[in-house]
């Protein structure tokens, strides 16, 4: 499902080179649930962004859902992205649209038939327990609700792969546990999940395969 071979990523900020990932290789099978962990700045977000080609690696090969990510044309990249649900670290909810509209937006721009949109959007909202807040604007949501709205948007197209970058970001333990339970449900229904978190304790409670990054290097792969 996901294959990284000796991947490195160096950001160039003007003349300064910022190494974010160094020589990372791993394989992730279909239906797996893997936790990506490591301290802040270790390169978790950078790694995830390579998977849906928001960034290109400086070195190495990446394969996602059978596609050689680095070699895809622009149109093929868009096709690949339609198969991947992403919860972004910064949520990226559109402030001018309600929760429902944010989710419907994704369906509309990816060509879902108009008559299916409402039902599918509400299915996703129910899955994260947010149907009652459908008409709220992002600014009117609590942090936990916003995270769940972002999660609903990521799963609404029922993609085979879910990438979740700090989906429990600033939540308290109870709220975090609730969001993780939802993600586990999604995984149980057959979706492959890769979840990044800097909260080591949280990573342990999940008791799944864990990849640990430190300063851009993969230092542990266990479980």
């Amino acid at each position: 499902m996901i294959e990284l071979h000796r991947v490195s990523k160096v950001y160039e900020v003007g003349p300064v080179k910022v190494p974010a990932l160094t020589d990372v290789s791993f394989h992730l099978g279909k239906g797996e649930f893997v936790v990506l962990t490591g301290p802040s700045g270790a390169g978790k977000t950078s790694l995830l962004r390579l998977l849906y080609r928001e960034e290109l690696p400086t070195e190495g090969d990446i394969e996602v859902l059978g596609q050689p990510v680095t070699e895809l044309s622009r149109a093929k990249v868009q096709t690949l992205r339609r198969s991947i649900g992403v919860v972004f670290q910064d949520a990226k909810l559109l402030p001018g649209r309600t929760v429902y509209e944010n989710i419907a937006f994704v369906l509309r721009v990816t060509g879902t038939a108009r008559r299916e949109i409402t039902a599918r959007a509400f299915d996703a909202l129910r899955a994260v327990g947010l149907s009652s807040r459908a008409q709220a604007y992002p600014a009117q949501l609590s942090l936990g609700e916003a995270q769940r709205a972002a999660l609903a948007r990521a799963i609404v197209r029922q993609q085979p792969l879910l990438i979740a970058d700090e989906p429990t970001g600033n939540l308290d333990d109870a709220m975090a546990a609730e969001v993780l339970a939802i993600i586990k449900d999604i995984w149980t229904s057959g979706t492959t999940v890769i979840l990044a978190t800097h909260q080591a304790r949280l990573a342990r409670t999940l008791r799944r395969r864990t990849l640990m990054l430190e300063a851009g290097r993969l230092v542990k792969d266990e479980g």
Binding site: F88, V109, T110, R157
Partner: peptide, 10 residues
């Protein structure tokens, strides 16, 4: 940005 990230066609 969202359209690009979720794979909307060009």
């Amino acid at each position: 940005e969202i359209m690009r990230l979720v794979g909307a066609p060009e």
